[in-house]
Design a protein around this nucleic acid. Structure first.
Length: 634
RNA sequence: GCCGGUGUAGCUCAGUUGGCUAGAGCAGCUGAUUUGUAAUCAGCAGGCCACGGGUUCGAAUCCUGUCACCGGCUCCA
């Protein structure tokens, strides 16, 4: 029979040949590297018999698909091992994920990470046994009987569509419900490591029982596995919580409260630089600044709908002379009140009001995470009041603005989501649809790739979210753009139109960086604490070789200070080596060494954090170089 | 909130099966050294062993409650 290959060539095989035979016919090396095949575009086991006219491509473990298949097989090996060691274990699911795989179990007794080596060892035995992954199709009844003591599997079987065949795979002794495909045998799961154990609700629902999830990773070779583990270690070194302490940027104090960061001078300075840049950028882009108080009467939150729809995230009211007040979880009602302080004309719109507005939200204790998830944070918030005919253009403007901002801070990779109407929401369908459409068109217009996140909108409207990743690859939502027909209605917000009649504006809520806390947390990890010159809290440190050079060094520091360069002098009676080491650990971009040579020549020796010693240069040249670099924000 | 883990000096960590006055390095302070591109030397000080109960002749160590942190789940900027 004839089999077509990806390069359009044809091979001739005997009747009843399998994908494995095809691989062998193409080449010995390929047959050895093959983990699965794609037959007519569908992934299949190598043991799959081929039919005349099939087109086939061989999948190897070094392709993304192959790696995923191999990791999925690794999760079966894990389940095998766990079942061996903990006979009563019940099985959940065990998929491949972006950096590895996991499997969920309901275990007879809790386990901890110290149990992983033992499981790993058993996995190695199973791998060594090179047990084939055998595929079988079962009737529904057979499957029910096979998994009679596996309630989670039974639940999955019941949910498979009636007409779908039930497919199982067996390796060594263990049989699992699985669509496949799998590597040919357990021996193909070579380089793997179990990483952590965690709790996970069955099917991700907190009303369901909590299972024990074991995470692991697997690679085609030990070398790649080693590299990956090295990357994980490197990511740990970039952790903003660690760098926050090392660089003395912030801390979170138990006695102050969980999720309530305290900014130290250097952290506060970085924040100030970002805030200044942000304000200037906004004032230069048609925004005006507003400011509102941190607490407001509970009546305001009843009008806004937050009392009904957002109360579980709000802190309890406080009593002030018999009146109830609430710490604000959002800034929008305040901005609306400013709008409503007088009548507005259609000529004023769009109104763009921005504020670095601090809000407080209740977050469950288990979700707090350094600066990335806190209970009090400052949003780089703005609310736009627009006429219906302006909405599209304004959203496009916002998207362009955010892309500009993210580029300045060096973020090139982000995920974009369009979140649609959630279950718990207000407003009529027509408005929701109109708003969602406006967001979609804007995304297309700007040419951003995005995914739909169904049901993830806010209670008052759909939104565009942009997420950036931390050092470990976890995505954090920063940018958000939300269209809102609801609040203008609730507050009876109006403008007087050309026709002298009252009309309802539409509100756009947006935060570009999201919150300064989260954004700076991501920024620290992004730069691994080595901030570019314009953001560095200390831009240069003067390192005199001996005390007799102090006067010269002070002169230069004064000169740099005149240009607004943030410079410190290391007055300590320490060796130059020590001073350099400490400056290097503080990740100060410019280390400026001056001794007799420099003083005589009127120069300064420059050592860059990033490049080491780059030699001496005249002081004015240095000033020019630094000012240029600061101006470029690079 | 849930599952598992962790909590010893400012930081990183030791601390045997419960038993002497809880140790070390770094940081800090004092003194000496005036130093040329990632650590000069010496001394001193620093601890309610997260917090509260309990078991015990005796608890950093065992039990228990609370809090915080870490990894996840769920939830969100």
């Amino acid at each position: 029979m004839k089999i077509f290959l990806p390069d359009n060539s044809i091979i001739e095989l005997d009747e009843g040949s399998t994908a494995r035979d095809a691989a062998a016919a193409i080449g010995k090396g390929l047959a050895k590297a093959a983990v699965a095949a794609a037959v007519d575009g569908h992934q299949a086991d190598l043991s799959k018999p081929l039919r005349d006219g099939d087109s086939i491509s061989i999948i190897t473990a070094d392709s993304p698909e192959g790696l995923e298949i191999m990791r999925h097989s690794a999760s079966h090996v894990l389940a095998s091992a766990v079942l061996d060691i903990y006979p009563g274990a019940q099985l959940g699911i065990g998929p491949a994920i972006s950096d590895g795989f996991y499997y969920d179990f309901l275990l007879p007794a809790p386990i901890s990470e110290s149990d992983l080596p033992r499981i790993e060892e058993r996995m190695r035995d199973i791998a060594k046994a090179r047990a084939p992954f055998q595929h079988r199709r079962l009737s529904r009844d057979e499957a029910r009987r096979l998994f009679e003591d596996q309630p989670f599997k039974l639940e999955l079987i019941e949910e498979l569509p009636e007409d779908e065949e039930i497919s199982v795979y067996t390796d060594l002794k263990f049989t699992d419900l699985c669509r496949g495909p799998h590597v040919p045998d357990t021996g193909r799961v070579t380089a793997f490591k179990l990483l952590s154990v965690a709790g996970a609700y069955w099917r991700g629902d907190e009303n369901n029982p909590m299972l024990t999830r074991i995470y692991g990773t697997a690679f085609p070779s030990q070398k790649e596995l080693g590299e990956h583990l090295e990357r994980l270690k490197e990511a740990e070194r970039r952790d903003h919580r660690l760098l926050g302490r090392q660089l003395d940027l912030f801390h979170i104090d138990e006695e102050v409260g969980a999720g309530l960061p305290l900014w130290h001078p250097k952290g506060a300075l970085i924040r100030k630089i970002i805030e200044d840049f942000w304000r200037d950028a906004h004032l230069g882009s048609g925004y005006e600044m507003v400011m509102i108080p941190h607490i407001a009467s509970v009546d305001l939150w009843k009008t806004s709908g937050h009392w009904d729809f957002y109360r579980e995230n709000m802190y309890s009211p406080m009593d002030i002379e018999g009146q109830q007040f609430i710490v604000k979880p959002m800034n929008c009602p305040g901005h609306i009140k400013i709008y409503k302080s007088r009548t507005r004309s259609y000529r004023e719109l769009p109104i763009r009001w921005a504020e670095l507005g601090t809000v407080y939200r209740f977050e469950r204790s288990g979700v707090l995470h350094g600066l990335l998830r806190v209970r009090g944070f400052t949003q780089d918030d703005a609310h736009l009041f627009v006429r219906p005919d302006q909405i599209q253009e304004e959203i496009i403007g916002i998207i362009k603005f955010v892309l500009y901002m993210l580029r300045i801070f060096g973020f090139k990779e982000y995920e974009v989501y369009l979140s649609t109407r959630p279950e718990k929401s207000v407003g009529d369908d027509a408005h929701w649809e109109q708003a969602t459409e406006a967001l979609r068109v804007a995304l297309e217009e700007v040419g951003l790739d995005y995914e739909i996140d169904p049901g993830e909108g806010v209670f008052y409207g759909p939104k565009i979210d942009m997420k950036i990743k931390d050092a470990l690859g976890r995505a954090w939502q920063c940018t958000t753009i939300q269209v809102d027909f609801n609040l203008p209605e609730r507050f009876d917000v109006t403008y007087v139109g050309e026709d002298n009649a009252e009309h309802r504006p539409i509100m756009i809520h947006r935060a570009l960086l999201g919150s300064l806390e989260r954004f700076i947390g991501c920024l620290i990890e992004h730069y691994a604490g080595a901030f570019p010159l314009w953001l560095a809290p200390v831009q240069a440190v003067m390192l005199p070789v001996a005390d007799r050079h102090l006067q010269y060094v002070e002169q230069i520091a004064t000169r740099l200070g005149q240009e607004g360069i943030r410079v410190e002098i290391d007055y300590r009676k320490e060796s130059v080596g020590k001073k350099i080491r400490d400056a290097q650990l503080e990740k100060i971009p410019y280390m400026l060494v001056a001794g007799d040579k420099e003083e005589d020549a009127g120069t300064i020796s420059v050592r860059l954090y990033s490049d080491g010693d780059v030699g001496a240069r005249p002081v004015e040249e240095l000033v020019g170089d630094m000012m240029r670099e600061i101006g470029e924000k690079s």
